[in-house]
């Protein structure tokens, strides 16, 4: 299928524009739902933060600001790359679009590696969810287990979304490379890109809560 092919819409749509509009709106509605999903656990986190300001201060200070900030930079860069890839594909630059998506995936993988390194460090120090581990025999601040449990819950759920996003982008990349996606079907890549931006936006909220606050 070359880039100039006019796509036929699915049977129940009148035009391909209508189909693309529906798909895009569907993704936005889905993201609204995702925002509420994370909203619930963030609300829980901030409530406990008000309950236990000292313990949460300790928890935030224990995290490595540098690693968290590098990861923020990595994710923001990846989001820029995927946004550019949509424009490239729309402009018919399929090769460039493929490269940009590949860069997005590489940066997403870097994010996960850094995140897992942090997890390894926590486990090494005896920090586990649910107040388990040797760390909590030394540090007794009330509410400290809540901080770390929520930390693992929030970042774990976010990492799951990163992994799903990487899978989606991987499928899209293979379809770009096989020339199944082109200028006419750039909206399909856009859907993956919008999802990736959500992953990014959520991290923008997790970063100050868990590393900077």
């Amino acid at each position: 299928m070359s880039d100039t092919t006019v796509l036929a819409p699915q049977e129940h749509f009148a035009t391909i524009e209508q189909q693309a509009h529906a798909a895009r709106l569907g993704m936005w509605v889905f993201l609204a739902s995702e925002v509420l999903l994370f909203g619930a656990i963030i609300a829980l986190f901030t409530s406990y933060q008000v309950h236990y300001p000292d313990a949460f201060r300790q928890g935030v200070d224990h995290n490595t600001k540098l690693l968290g900030s590098i990861n923020t930079g990595v994710l923001l860069t990846s989001s820029t790359a995927v946004a550019c890839s949509v424009h490239a594909l729309r402009a018919g630059k399929r090769r460039l679009a493929g490269l940009l998506v590949a860069a997005t995936i590489a940066l997403g993988a870097v994010f996960l590696v850094i995140k897992l390194t942090e997890y390894a460090k926590h486990f090494h120090e005896g920090i586990y969810p649910g107040g388990a581990g040797s760390f909590f025999q030394v540090h007794h601040a009330r509410g400290l287990p809540e901080f770390w449990t929520l930390y693992f819950g929030m970042t774990g759920l976010h990492a799951l979304h990163v992994t799903i996003g990487l899978t989606v982008l991987g499928v899209l990349l293979s379809r770009i490379m096989r020339a199944e996606l082109g200028a006419a079907s750039a909206h399909r890549l856009e859907l993956g890109a919008i999802y990736w931006h959500l992953v990014d936006v959520i991290w923008i909220f997790l970063w100050p809560l868990l590393y900077l606050a």
Binding site: H51, P145, E146
Partner: peptide
């Protein structure tokens, strides 16, 4: 897994469950 999001013994608050 006894993570204790709402377990008072681990500093959790069952009333927050009710809110959510």
């Amino acid at each position: 897994l006894h993570w204790g999001f709402f377990d008072p013994a681990r500093g959790g608050d069952p009333v927050l469950y009710q809110h959510l």
